[in-house]
Design a protein around this nucleic acid. Structure first.
Lengths: 199, 199, 199, 199
DNA sequence: TATGAATGAGAGTTCATTCAT
DNA sequence: CATGAATGAACTCTCATTCAT
């Protein structure tokens, strides 16, 4: 099902994170044993401990890296556009959808296994998560305030948009016919409809 | 954190399912030990096995019951309305949102732990799940076909609506200010916007 | 595989010993759970404890009863014959073979599960067992002393005869063609050959 | 009662099989817990699982190895002699008796715990067992056919001989006065008497 | 008589992890 | 860099048994 190929010299670290990524995604954090990961990576248990301090370490690694990337993508996307709410909303939709399809596995792990982060790590990452959340709120609120968006319940509009974008990871098939830019456009359209913005 | 009250004689079965419900929701299926459940239920480990055949049994029980209820609610809701697509869509939104908030815990467990159902049970329940999914598809497709809905990508519209409704379970607070009928109205409005239907 | 028929009133006790007999024979003492027995008897666990004090009780019952019967049979057989060693040997062979085929199951249990008797019970039954053993020794020794049997190693002759007779329980099929009297005659012949007695 | 000496590093495997051997022999398969085995081996429970896949594995190991050895011994013994039935019978008696006393413990386990082999393993080993059984049958039948043996019921003769030889494991004391070659001679004599062969 | 409910101890097995080499 | 050997705690589940009714 995976990397049965011999691990290239020095490639141990990568092989392990890759194996952890797949295992956590398929069976969940608690459903995955550290032996599953080692086996999948084609390495010994001890090799795993040579590179990582433990199972939790692997989870943090995967979630932290991909969550940080999401945040960077969001900020980058917003940097590139003006202050028009619709434009900004579309930028955020694009960043989210692209992230969700390009980092399908990690983003799903992040969503499902967040609660299994050790408190110390969760606390730290909660900050990032909320920052990203605030970006959406600011944009929607601003759009409503300036009359670009017409929605009676901006909070719900925001939640609906985010939920719709996130759900993409659950069904999108990178090998299928639908190209990412088209996907982005579709969900931009949906987002604008939800806030009844200009189309 | 829970049922510290002594379990009345013969009340074991309920105490256990209740405890399982809470534990699975908080820590996930694999993250919950049956000792956790027994402790939470205020019973011995063996009592748990007196009432149930095992951990899997408890999971199936919770998921099956609530999934079946969801399906019943959907059909009931559609039975009560005519064949107008918008009306039918609103009925389904109402059934879904009401289910998601009234069975918040079980529905979340169902979503998160579906993969942990033993193959035999999953196979059986997959049927129910798909049937419910079809209800959405039929309505959206019909609305589009008859010109009541204007959306270029009905599949995505459907997914967005479902995702938005489902997400309600993650944040809605039954003890808060927002009443369920209002909640239903808000998400009905959002759904109609997504399909660009009559409002 | 067994008594699925409803248990006749008051027949509880018998149903249970019968079920224990079968279960111990098929799966051994430790391999049999008391629930197996109750299920096989078509009774509740509690009914079992109503009639017996526990699992050990059932084992003792079966072994003791059948061991005592064997001893009685042996003594009875010897009572009926004179003091000719060959005659006496044949009587003992007959008693043993008849016992082994008529109480096939219990005698096998006795042989296999003797070590699982609680020390108190084992001590008591060891006496019976040895008494029976002595009967063989006396006869063989007497036969040798009086010149009726010609064997250099009477101990081994005795062991060989006993082993051969006992083994009958492992293969004899009561429903088969071979009648018990014929069987007895065959093993009588074998026994006489082993001690090189008159034939 | 056993190996109290600290287990030398890397000597785990042997210590465990030795402990299993003793425990199974003394208390039976079901009567032995793997904790018993680990304790007796002077190792932790987990060490046991490091070397073996489970309790069944240990049973198979012991039975398979010793059953195979018995078969090898039989064939070896027959290879070394001509086609005279009496000679061949004596060879088989020797192989059996020697095996039974040199592998007293394992051979007893094999006899008592055969039914506890998982079906897959039992099926495989049943083959070996039957092959060994056929060796006896062929010899006795041949002896009768050629007039070297005079017995009316060769099947029973064969069973009696085998039972007598096997029983040796139950009482023979390697530390006692009786040397194995003498023992072999005694049972050879008994076997020849049973078939009424040339002495 | 007979039952259903409940239990504490222990079953076999797997867990994440450590350590000497 | 990497391994094989070993561990203690925890896992799911079954055991023989008891007790209130």
């Amino acid at each position: 099902m995976s990397t049965a190929a011999p691990v290239p010299r020095g490639g141990g670290r990568d092989a392990i994170t890759r194996a952890a990524r797949e295992s956590f995604a398929e069976q969940g954090y608690h459903g995955t044993s550290i032996r599953d990961i080692a086996r999948r990576a084609g390495l010994s248990l001890s090799a795993l401990y040579h590179w990582h301090t433990g199972k939790q370490d692997l989870l943090v690694l995967l979630i932290e890296e991909s969550t940080a990337e999401y945040f960077r993508r969001c900020e980058g996307a917003l940097d590139g556009v003006g202050d028009d709410p619709a434009e900004r909303l579309l930028a955020l939709v694009r960043a989210t959808v692209e992230y969700r399809v390009s980092r399908r596995v990690e983003s799903t792990i992040a969503a499902a296994e967040w609660r299994n982060l050790a408190p110390e790590h969760r606390a730290r990452l909660d900050g990032l998560r909320e920052s990203a959340g605030r970006l959406w709120t600011e944009i929607v609120d601003d759009g409503v305030a300036r009359g670009h968006f017409r929605c009676a319940h901006p909070e719900d509009a925001r939640r609906a948009i985010v939920a719709a974008c996130n759900a993409v990871a659950q069904w999108y098939d990178p090998a299928g016919d639908l190209a990412v830019p088209d996907l982005v456009e579709r969900y931009g359209e949906i987002a604008l409809r939800i806030v009844d913005g200009p189309r």
